[in-house]
Design a protein around this nucleic acid. Structure first.
Lengths: 127, 127
DNA sequence: ATAGATGCAAAGGTTTTGCATAACT
DNA sequence: AGTTATGCAAAACCTTTGCATCTAT
């Protein structure tokens, strides 16, 4: 059976930070924000909680190209756009094409639960 | 101007390994294969060449979730399926929906050059 | 001849972990 | 009380890099 989860002040604050931005922050940025409230929080705690929260489907982990992950506090499935110039990652407000899942399931002869898409190009500032 | 590239035996062998499989191998797996022919090849050379080959658009780098990259010797844009049970990554033989790029460009007010999609679920062996 | 590539080993940056202690429920 | 989480620091992990040497063109 699943483990019981406690809502510690660290975990609560991490979620709060994630929910209050649409900037898809890195673990380190989250660490810096949480430290403002809980000065002696450790990076290990940030990583442990990000993993727990991902298992709880409270966030999405993104990793496109860069050597570090970014985290998205919006657990609803949605698409992302990544600027090739400035590296910014933004949400795309477009409905997810779930019908593609069925098409792929037929192609591979398996079951498809979800998909993710990332778009690459130049944002309005950089183009 | 772009650098001149040499076709060393290491680079040639790495490409050969990549082209001869559809298994989306890791750098380490490629290293093991190349070592069979060139026993004293170094991992650094594998990584350097994978980066060069990516710049030359001879391969695609994939990084979904896991902590290490996988490489795809098929440089044509195509979709991938990743099995949540066994971790296998396979190509999806379906045409890329390029019309989505334009839709996203309008949403974000920028330019979109490409997109990639990964489908998640259970393959025919695991479902 | 010479710019580009290699091998080796060390360094790099991100993420995970062991352990003793603290704190939710 | 009991078990889950934290802080700290060390370790793990994948990838990159410096440097002397080699090699493709």
């Amino acid at each position: 059976m699943a483990k019981k989860r406690r809502m510690t002040k660290q975990r609560k604050k991490i979620l709060e930070v994630l929910r209050s931005t649409t900037s898809h922050p890195t673990a380190d940025w989250i660490y810096e924000q949480v430290k403002k409230d809980i000065p002696n929080v450790s990076l290990g705690t940030i990583y442990r909680n990000l993993n727990v929260l991902r298992e709880m489907d409270e966030l999405m982990e993104l990793n496109y190209g860069s050597s570090y992950s970014r985290f998205d506090g919006n657990p609803e499935n949605h698409y992302h756009f990544s600027c090739l110039e400035c590296g910014k990652v933004m949400d795309v407000e477009m409905e997810v094409k779930t019908e593609m899942n069925q098409q792929v399931a037929e192609k591979i002869g398996g079951e498809v639960e979800s998909h993710r898409s990332e778009f690459f190009g130049y944002c309005s500032d950089c183009k």
